[in-house]
Design a protein around this nucleic acid. Structure first.
Lengths: 239, 239
DNA sequence: CTGAAACCTTTCAAATTGTAACAAGACCGA
DNA sequence: TCGGTCTTGTTACAATTTGAAAGGTTTCAG
């Protein structure tokens, strides 16, 4: 979830204003935050800044292939994707689900059902680590002890990391193998959108990389995607 | 999952023999193990011995209140519950989902859709921290790792590609063997309709071709259709 | 065959990111 | 309180990626 403190964010992508209005109203009444878009391009631009919890997507968009968008969404973002489409053929539904959508609702729809299905997607999946965060994560031979602010390497050797470094590390460890944009980082790490803090971000990452003994030319863990953000490359398991 | 080594187990609880037969056959064709029950009592007895991965439940059972059963199932078992019911009212669906079902399919249903929705439930939930969807596509001896921004050739040798190149590549891989016009690309890749970005597009494709080791005279993968657009020639399979 | 349009590729400059060096605070023990 | 260390943001400059510009090559119509 983008921010546990706030209500879940649901995005709406549909080219019919009437549908957008209806969904927005229903969802806000149900207590969700919403953002709606009429064009795929605007939607994708917004994704660089925020992380929705559920994305409602209409397939029949004028400016993009909706299915390809769904595919990308499901893979790149962590969000649940629900297709809302006028196409009711079984084949449409099957391919939509196949490509990564978590649900498929056909128009005309009942707002109450949409809310119910969104709620299902937001339901906490059988939380295995129920106990309030043992706060330790292992990845690529490292163990990060967030309770002690210490990184432990394969030989058991320990390196301390600071609070600021820990914030960045935790952000990565929470969303491994997924693109994290700079604006998303900013939002999470509090800093304003001033351009001076931009550099501070870099510096934090740079220092973190040093402690993880990254090779600058060939980073194994924190990879930079020029113009897009960063990706943490290793699998992570929390305990 | 009850046993990773075996095919996922799907249970069917429905009092109509014809439905049981149809579902059993479809699901076994799709590669799942199945167990079907006509009475809730038998089903619950079986639960003491096995752990299904997905439970299909008909609500209109003679011997129990189906909703209560669903509720118990969702809470106690870790399994996904899909309701298959003749009751198509929105209110029925909403309460079914509310009480813990993960999906709700109304009769008459198409077996293909049931399979698709089961598959969605079995997909590894993206939030479970461990492995967040590695998405890659293979084509013509190459494997494109979009989670690492790396192209792997037949010998396993890797070449990094940039974000801009990846956008183009993904566009092609999403629609292989289909003409993609330049305006379509523009839309998708964000740039305006200015003439200058037209050239930038060319450059992206050019650089991508280089990394795919295309022969300029005789492109095997990205073919130019003069005056119309491009076609990606190879088959693609995503995983 | 010729010219124009479409497309390719090299070169270059601007934007983005990495990192070293520095300075302002915070924190801590004496 | 004082001095020292640690943390962290800022600045400056290097390195890298990307789009823009420009010139060459291919394709097609007539």
């Amino acid at each position: 979830m983008s921010d546990p403190a706030l209500a879940p964010l649901v995005t709406i992508l549909d080219d019919e204003p009437e549908i957008r209005r209806l969904l927005t109203e229903t969802l806000e009444d149900a207590g969700y935050r919403t953002q709606s878009f009429s064009r795929a391009r605007d939607f994708e631009a917004a994704l660089k800044r925020v992380t929705p919890d559920v994305c409602l997507v209409d397939l029949s968009l004028p400016d993009t292939d909706g299915l390809a968008l769904v595919h990308r969404l499901a893979l790149e973002q962590g969000a649940s994707v629900i297709i809302i489409s006028g196409r009711a053929q079984v084949q449409d539904r099957v391919t939509g689900l196949e490509l990564g959508a978590d649900d498929y609702i056909t128009k005309p729809f009942d707002p109450a059902e949409v809310v119910a299905r969104i709620r299902v997607r937001l339901r906490v999946p059988p939380r295995d680590g129920k106990s309030a965060t043992g706060d330790r994560a292992s990845f690529a031979g490292w163990i990060a002890h967030f309770d002690r602010y210490v990184l432990e390497d394969e030989q058991g050797q320990e390196t301390a990391f600071s609070h600021a470094e820990g914030e960045v590390l935790r952000l990565f460890l929470d969303s491994p193998k997924r693109l994290i944009s700079r604006p998303q980082m900013m939002e999470r790490l509090g800093g304003g959108v001033g351009d001076s803090f931009d550099r501070a971000m870099d510096v934090r990452i740079s220092r973190l990389r040093t402690k993880l003994r990254e090779d600058p030319k060939n980073p194994r863990l924190i990879k930079t995607i020029y113009g897009a953000g960063y990706i943490f490359l290793s699998d992570v398991s929390w305990s």
